[in-house]
């Protein structure tokens, strides 16, 4: 499957590090050093305790499928990239992250173990994390 052109993320000061790490092939999550929460999507203040003592943590890139849905038709999305598998993957570190599964929908079910891949976008300073079933 190709995704050209893949939508380009809106990069902000709060999320710039996340996207640049993805461009380098690393998935980051946020970890609060005060309350210990590991969370997604990235925010400068911990959404549980409002501490700003939060760090970037390198995720393993491994997880399991929490849920998914294969979208058969979508206006505004390239026909050749359908069906599109929208999913929530539960990372080993805890957070459930919205993503795509880059595989035939028949090859996946809830609980399937998956691993991260990165899709290039027009902006070289970013890449989009997606997941594929683990070998």
């Amino acid at each position: 499957m190709s995704w050209e052109p893949r939508p380009t993320p809106e990069i902000t000061p709060e999320t710039e590090r996340y996207w640049s790490a993805a461009a380098d092939g690393t998935l980051l999550v946020r970890e609060c050093t005060d309350c210990g929460l590991v969370y997604h999507y990235p925010r400068a203040l911990c959404p549980d305790c409002f501490s700003d003592d939060v760090e970037w943590k390198e995720a393993s890139g491994e997880g399991t499928v929490y849920s998914y849905s294969a979208t058969q038709s979508m206006s505004g999305w390239p026909e050749e990239d359908l069906p599109l598998v929208l999913a929530y993957v539960e990372l080993e570190e805890g957070p459930r992250v919205m993503t795509n599964l880059e595989c035939d929908p028949e090859d996946v079910e809830i609980g399937t173990r998956v691993t991260v891949r990165f899709k290039a976008v027009e902006d070289a300073d970013a890449a989009v994390p997606v997941f594929v079933p683990r070998e």
Binding site: P7, P9, T15, W19, H40, Y41, V97, N100
Partner: peptide, 14 residues
């Protein structure tokens, strides 16, 4: 994609 949150959702065709 119009906001930072869209970048974690709509970018996936949500």
């Amino acid at each position: 994609i119009r906001s930072a949150q869209d970048s974690f959702e709509r970018i996936y065709g949500a």
